[in-house]
């Protein structure tokens, strides 16, 4: 079940569009936040409130890479490995995350503290390598800097 606040939020989003269907992507974000990931219940909740068949909601959501299609760690590390980041050492950082934090690309560490998602370009090429942790940008990454950053997330 969605919280009262989430329902209000989705209704407010709905009002910004001429059709309920257009509110689907933002509503999925809300549901994902509420349920932690896009569980069947999350889809059902969105489907109910917007009147969109749930299979459709799921089909739409799975098209997009940034939705959480399975349960994730408490924090999501989204590291870019596209060309600009790659040529400035992003791959080594992937290895580092693996060795230092037991974080495999697409995986979650044993404590459920972090999940690692390999990203296509995140628009920080001028300050490569770069990553997002949840919604925060971190740029000009080095191994040491990563340790420092991740220390802040519990």
């Amino acid at each position: 079940m969605l919280s009262e606040a989430a329902i209000k939020e989705i209704e407010a989003i709905r009002a910004k569009y001429p059709t309920a269907r257009a509110a689907l992507l933002p509503a999925i974000y809300v549901a994902q936040r509420e349920f932690g990931w896009l569980s069947p219940e999350a889809y059902e909740a969105v489907s109910d409130i917007l009147g969109i068949p749930k299979a459709i909601a799921r089909g739409v959501a799975t098209f997009y890479a940034m939705y959480r299609h399975r349960p994730m760690g408490r924090n999501v590390v989204q590291l870019c490995t596209n060309v600009s980041c790659m040529i400035l050492g992003a791959e080594k950082l992937v290895d580092f995350l693996k060795n230092r934090y037991s974080l495999e690309p697409g995986g979650t560490d044993p404590d459920g503290r972090f999940s690692l998602v390999i990203m296509e370009c995140i628009g920080a090429c001028g300050t490569a390598p770069a990553m997002l942790v949840n919604e925060d940008f971190y740029e000009n990454l080095t191994e040491k800097y990563i340790e420092e950053i991740l220390g802040k997330y519990k």
Binding site: P40, A55, G59, V60, T62
Partner: peptide
């Protein structure tokens, strides 16, 4: 979706991973 109007199946994922699934 378009003719029967049941919208019970959808393409899931994208690119080469696209395939058709019912909700479950």
């Amino acid at each position: 979706e378009g003719v029967q109007g049941a919208s019970a199946i959808a393409v899931i994922n994208r690119g080469g991973h696209s395939h058709i699934e019912p909700f479950s």
